[in-house]
Every structure is written in C-alpha cells, then in structure tokens.
Amino acid sequence: MRNIQSINCFYQQVLLVGTLVLVGCGGGSEKEIMPVTPVSPTIPTKASGTLDDQFTLWLTDLSNKVILPNYQTLETKAKQFSVSSTAFCQLDNAKASDLTELRVAWQELNVAWQSIQWLKIGPILQHNRNFRIQLWPDSRGYVVRDVDNFLLTQTTLDANAIAKSSVSGQGVPALEYLLYPTTNQDSLLSASNKSKRCEVMVAVSDNVTTISGDVLDAWQATGGNYIAQVIGGNGEFTGVKDAVEEIVTNWLEQVERVKDEKMLLPFALTAPGSPSAAEFYRSEQSLVSIKTNVLSFQQIYSAGGGHSFEKILVEFLGQHTIAAQMNDSITGAITATEALSGLYTELLSSDEGRFIIDNNIQKLRVLRDVLSIDFIQATDINIGFNSNDGD
C-alpha cells in the first residue's frame, strides 16, 4: 500500500506542477513550492528576408563557386592544350605515345568545356563565342568542310585568321577532327601534310585559348565584371528573379539537350543506332561528355556547395517534398550515368547497352518534369523559351 500511495503521490505532484501549493499525500501537511517556468519547445525559424534575398545568395555562390571556377578551368585547359600542341608539332619524330598525350590534353579541354557548356548568358554569347568553341550538332559537316579548307590554304594561318573564319572550324570539334582522323594517312604522325595540319591545330588551339580567356575576363570583377550584373540582377537583367529565370532556363535546356541530342538522336529507333550522330564519335568522348553534363546539374542545384536551391526550398519556402523530388531526380540521373561505360557504339548496338541508354533517357525525363513543373511552381519563377523543348 505504501508503494501505491507513493505512486499516486507522484502523479498528483506531476499534475500540480506550476501551482503555488502542493497538497501532501498520506495525511502530510501542505508544502509551498516555487513556481516552475514552462520551457517552450524549439521551433525552427524561417530564413529571414525575401525570396529575392534568397535568390541573391544562390546567384552569389553559383557565380563564385561554379561559374567562375569552371571558366578558369576552361582557360587553363585551353592554354595547356595550346602549349602541348605547339610542343608536339616541334618534335622531329613524334611517337604514338606523344600523340596519346596530346589527345589526353584535348580530352581534358573538352571536359572543362562540357562542365560549363550549359550556361548561355552574357559573355559566352557575345561574338558567337559559344558556337566558336563548339558548333554542334553539325549534320551538314561544316566542321570538316572548314578544316579541310584550312588545310588547303596556301597562306600561313594563325589565331587571328581562324577567329575571322566561319564559326564551325574554330573550336573543340575542329581539334577533334585533326586529332582523330578517319584514315591513318591523315594522322598527325604520318600525314604528308603534317606541318600544315600542325599549323592549323596550333592556330585553332590558340583561338580557343583567346576565346576562353576573353569570357573569363568579362566575368571577373577585375575585368568586365559581368558577375556583378548576375548577382545584382541588373544590366541585361530586369531583376534578381530575372537572372535566376534565365539561368534555370539554361539548365533546363541542357537537360533537354543531353536527353534529345546527345542520347535520343544516336539511339535512333533500332540497333545499331546512329553512332555518327553522337557528339564526339571520332574520339569516343561522347559518354564522358554526357557524364560531365549530368554532374553539372548537381553543381547548379547546390550552387557548388553554397546557398543551394535545396536550402531555399526547405528553409525559406517550406517545400520539403519538392526538395526531396529534386534531390532524388538529380541523384537518379547521376547514378544512371555510372552504367555508361565502354564505347558508345557498342552500347548502341547491343540490347543490354540500349537498355542502359534508355534508362538514362528516362531519368533525364524525370528530372526535366520535376524541374519544369514542380520546381518552378514552388519557387514562383518563369522559364523562358526552351529551344530544345521536346519529348
């Protein structure tokens, strides 16, 4: 009975906590206790400011942690390839290993470009710089036409001469054509016109270095300071929201481009597909390019690990579900690319390979849908005209 009485006493005390008088149990006397101050539960506070303030934080980190570093890498890799091509062409008896090293330098340049290929605002659009770095798709063979014309030119070509020519022969695809010829007789190791091929390659590579350097300088605060326009939502933008809308439109267009042009076109209706429609079928760098593109989507969303869209969705807008959908769709797309191994031509020609490619296409469709519907509704932004819109 004493135990029961003690338990009853305990519950009575719990019920009476916060009052000034506690009635004793078992015939005890009244006992005065001090009032207890209730402890309020910790409630997560919403991020302060406006949605434009949140967008400004995202634009700031995207510019400083993603865009500028990628343009810096592009310029660095362009310079490195330019130096490597000049050194190769000065060799009296270049070996296969020398050509392999040069090709690796080109591959690194291409990866640097693919990391920032998605962005189509500001300096990269001026003077047709984006097309001068890469004209693609090139269904009419303009790259081959222009490079072949360069090779027939009697006058000495340099970067200035290349810069004044048609855009199709100025960039990364032109270099691929020179590095990965269809026949051995056109190889940089043994071609009868090797010196002319080297001249063209060095001129084109110097041109790419100039273009990438001009774009970087235009973005930097010490140069054209385009970064200030993006972060401030001024200049060519009507506001911060407009800057975000332009960039998200670029992002969506790249998702569509990877899905439609880089995968669906080569996939075709049946095996063996259309390998020559791939972005870099000569060098077999198409899959590497696709993987790099898809990884860039995470960089955009996360602002390079800075003030991410996820933070805006969860902490400011309270859109936990949309944030989860975005994370899942981006992760799903990246995970799917891990199976894109080997040669693209082999994947396109086998049932297993085509299943892998189709899975990647489906994952990109999911990302496209979440990004173009749920995400823009949650963030109250409007996307512009999507030149790659399709199924």
Rank of each mutant, 00 (worst) to 15 (best):
I211Q: 04
L135Q: 08
I322R: 01
T153H: 10
D148R: 06
V104N: 14
T321Q: 10
L157N: 03
L313W: 09
A47C: 07
V172Q: 07
D98S: 13
Q299I: 03
L188Y: 11
E338H: 13
A278R: 04
T238Q: 13
S6R: 13
L125D: 10
D242E: 10
G342D: 06
L91M: 11
E253N: 14
D217T: 14
A336D: 08
S139Q: 14
L51C: 02
F237S: 06
W106Q: 05
A174K: 07
L175Q: 06
V240H: 02
D380G: 01
K259I: 01
V288F: 09
G28F: 06
A221W: 00
T345K: 14
K31I: 14
L119Q: 11
T222E: 13
W58Q: 02
P123C: 01
K196C: 10
E284F: 04
S40H: 05
Q72K: 15
E310W: 00
N149G: 10
S40W: 01
S350V: 00
I133S: 04
E261R: 15
E310I: 12
A47T: 13
A94Y: 09
S274C: 07
L125P: 01
T270W: 07
F309E: 13
V167S: 09
E32D: 05
K65Y: 05
A191H: 08
I7P: 00
T182D: 12
D389G: 00
F10R: 09
C25W: 07
E246V: 06
G384I: 06
H127L: 15
A159N: 11
T337L: 08
I334S: 03
S192T: 14
A112D: 09
N234P: 00
V143I: 09
L189P: 03
Q72T: 15
R132G: 10
L59V: 08
G342H: 03
E284S: 14
Y11P: 00
Q229M: 09
Q229R: 05
G171W: 02
V172T: 06
L175S: 01
S296Q: 13
P41T: 05
F385E: 07
R354T: 02
V111S: 10
F10T: 12
G233M: 02
M34L: 14
W251I: 10
